[in-house]
Simulated scan of single mutants.
Amino acid sequence: MDYRSIPLIGLLLSLIISCKPQKDNPPGEVHTPQQVVESEQHRFIIDTLARDLQVPWSIDWLPDGRMLISERNTGQIHLFEPETGFQKALPALPDVYRKGDGGLLDLKVHPDFIQNEWIYLAYSTSRPDSSSTTVVERIRLSGDTLGERERLFTAFPYYRSESHYGCRLLLTDGFLFITIGDRYRRDSAQYLSTHNGKVLRLYEDGSIPADNPFLSEPGAQPEIWSYGHRNPQGMAQHPISQEIWIHEHGPKGGDEINIVRPGRNYGWPLITYGEEYEGGPVGKGLQSQAGMEQPLYYYKPSIAPSDMLFYSGKAFPEWRGDLFIGAMALRHLNRLETQGNEIVHEERLLDGLDRIRSVSEGPEGFLYLGTDSGFLLCIKPARFFW
């Protein structure tokens, strides 16, 4: 946790002691106030809501205040009621490929869910020859029942690889943005003939916008918005500029934050601030090259970034407009202050707590974290300590 707060072991013990298994349990009291954590701008507490999730990859919210959680390792969606702790696991999607980095990945509730009942899912799927790829579907959710499914996108090509699927989704202004990793075929990030190592833009029904930058280029995949990415697993829209920000995993060092703009090349694997895992330069060891974008910010050593969001709530007023990113390798919550398109300050919260996989802002402005150890945590202001 933050270096000025209580010892890490005390926080971990308090989380474990206060946590109660909630899967398929009836409603009941689930939150026990935790010790107060001091950060640079706010004092907060952490409540433990669940501890038995299987890599909660994504969290999003239904209009009625219920939470949807995607479990990477089981291929299931969980309905969770934060106020009561009631949790229900929906039937697993049968065609989810659950190996390596694969499984049920991002989940987004359509902005007009009340009218159309669509939720959007990204997951990995495979063929009989064990090759796999990333797909995006939308499914109708009526009450607690999954209904009509519609395949919107399939990444090309399939690979015999269990790595670097991406994949984050963003729904905005009728568009669907998708991040796809390089599938550990690093050179493919530079090839416009594949979807790998790209950010893609579709309409929300899966059709292709006529103004996509490579639509008329022979051999290019028409969905491509930007390319030269390694493994982008975070995406968020800036609340003022409305531009799309992503982060992506570097190799050994070199995790990047970028603003994705149409037709731009972000350099992987030709330029990077990282190095090979066994040591030594990637390729020619270049960090810049003409015609390729420089990151807004990079991490060395890597933090292994996961989910990300721009905070907009009222519960923590000093954090409004800040960028929050889960960190898996360094096990903390990364807070970044921005001014326009610049990142001007970094604070590492909850240092050493756990591999934070998902980050979400609830309707009341609290922050919700899912961790690889199976915890669902809620960060709320210290005034809720009683």
Rank of each mutant, 00 (worst) to 15 (best):
S126K: 09
I59Y: 12
G219C: 04
E337R: 13
G280V: 13
P232Q: 08
G166K: 12
I119H: 04
P33I: 10
E40P: 01
R320N: 04
F214K: 08
R98L: 10
K380E: 12
A89E: 02
G279D: 03
D60A: 15
T74F: 15
A210I: 13
K314H: 08
D182F: 11
Y165Q: 00
D354R: 07
G147P: 05
L309F: 12
N258R: 07
S241V: 05
I69F: 15
P317E: 00
W319Q: 01
Y297N: 00
S226I: 07
P209T: 02
E29A: 06
A304D: 04
V30Q: 02
H195C: 11
D322A: 12
L171I: 14
F214E: 02
R66T: 05
F86N: 07
D351K: 14
P27W: 01
E342H: 08
S131G: 04
V55R: 05
I325Q: 01
F153S: 02
A382K: 01
P317Y: 04
S126P: 14
R51V: 01
W57S: 03
A304M: 11
I259K: 09
L369C: 14
D351Y: 15
G250Y: 15
V37H: 12
E364M: 12
Y191L: 10
R43Y: 14
E40M: 02
I271S: 01
P317T: 00
R51H: 14
F214G: 11
Y297L: 13
G228N: 03
G326Y: 11
Q242V: 04
L333K: 10
P209Q: 00
L79D: 06
R4V: 09
S312G: 09
S5P: 13
L377V: 12
D182Y: 06
R151W: 15
L169E: 01
V199R: 01
R138K: 04
V359T: 07
N258V: 10
G147K: 09
